[in-house]
């Protein structure tokens, strides 16, 4: 459920053109006595960026502060590279840049003692930024474009994505639980579909615009989950393929053109929605 440039038929730039990497090597780091250091400007997704660091911290002690700076709506992902790739520190965040808030990052990106432990080699510090510019589309989750980076995110953030999804599902289950007690009120053919755009807007608003979460991976998870629902609605082959490797519950919702449609009897589905174990 993870597609590529070829089947991305949206207008504008291709996904690969919206993603870019920049590596900044700071030599003789121990001799730097400036409060802040700026990288050269680099371009990703049609926007210009630079990295700003405070080697001795920005309003904090004993930390390296690191920020990505620009002047338009985007998302950012900087990392400091350790000589041992497994030890490289990755921090991921989403941010909507605007005129008065053109920089975003971490004041306490890393403790200074940690910086010296493998990150500074031959008096050189390497900082790598991976930037993904997000198309302004509020009614669709978006994916993480870079495969390697995405895998790194899964390693670091999967548990927190689980917590976020669990919290969101359980909150809604609680409300639905009260409804199911009133069985007489519901009949099979009423209130069983809604435009996908209407619901996906709510999804994106919950997870991105209201900033309840600031990780690319949540949006990426929703993106692939939605693709899965679409595939299952279009062809049963996709589902059969999935079942080869792992038992997955039948979808409770299918997609018919631009509508989400409940896939079975309303009360049965409601029970499932409330009682089925968390994935």
């Amino acid at each position: 459920y993870w597609d590529t440039d070829e089947n991305d038929n949206e207008s504008g730039k291709k996904p690969s053109e919206l993603f870019g990497k920049f590596t900044w090597r700071i030599e003789k780091i121990s001799q730097v006595n400036k409060r802040e250091l700026r990288s050269i400007v680099f371009e990703v997704g049609g926007y210009k960026w630079y990295i700003l660091i405070y080697p001795q911290g920005c309003d904090v002690h004993n930390h390296l502060s690191l920020f990505l700076c620009v002047a338009n709506p985007d998302k950012l992902r900087p990392a400091v590279v350790n000589k041992d790739p497994k030890k490289s520190k990755y921090s991921d965040t989403l941010h909507w840049f605007w005129k008065k808030e053109h920089d975003w990052g971490w004041k306490k990106f890393m403790e200074l003692s940690q910086v010296l432990d493998g990150f500074v080699v031959n008096d050189t510090l390497v900082i790598k930024a991976q930037v993904q510019v997000i198309r302004e589309k509020k009614s669709r989750p978006f994916r993480c474009f870079d495969c390697t980076y995405r895998r790194e995110l899964v390693r670091v953030y999967l548990t927190s994505v689980e917590q976020i999804c669990r919290h969101s599902i359980e909150e809604r289950r609680g409300k639905l639980g009260k409804l199911i007690e009133d069985k007489v009120r519901w009949s099979r053919n009423h209130l069983s579909r809604e435009k996908t755009e209407v619901i996906l807007k709510e999804v994106v608003k919950q997870f991105f615009i209201e900033k309840e979460v600031a990780s690319t991976l949540v949006m990426d998870s929703l993106y692939s989950g939605l693709n899965m629902l679409e595939s299952q609605s279009i062809s049963k082959k996709g589902r059969a393929k999935l079942l080869d490797t792992e038992e997955t519950p039948d979808p409770m919702v299918s997609i018919d053109k631009d509508m989400f449609v409940l896939a079975d009897d309303m009360l049965l589905l409601l029970e499932r929605a409330i009682l089925e174990p968390f994935p």
Binding site: R151, E162, L179, S221, S224, L226, V253, L262
Partner: peptide
Amino acid sequence: KNAIERDERRLTELGRRCVEIFVFAHIF
């Protein structure tokens, strides 16, 4: 590789369940 695939499936399934529960919460 199996662990990566398992994580991928888990991520997709989590996303799918979230979208589904939003459909329910909206419709009801």
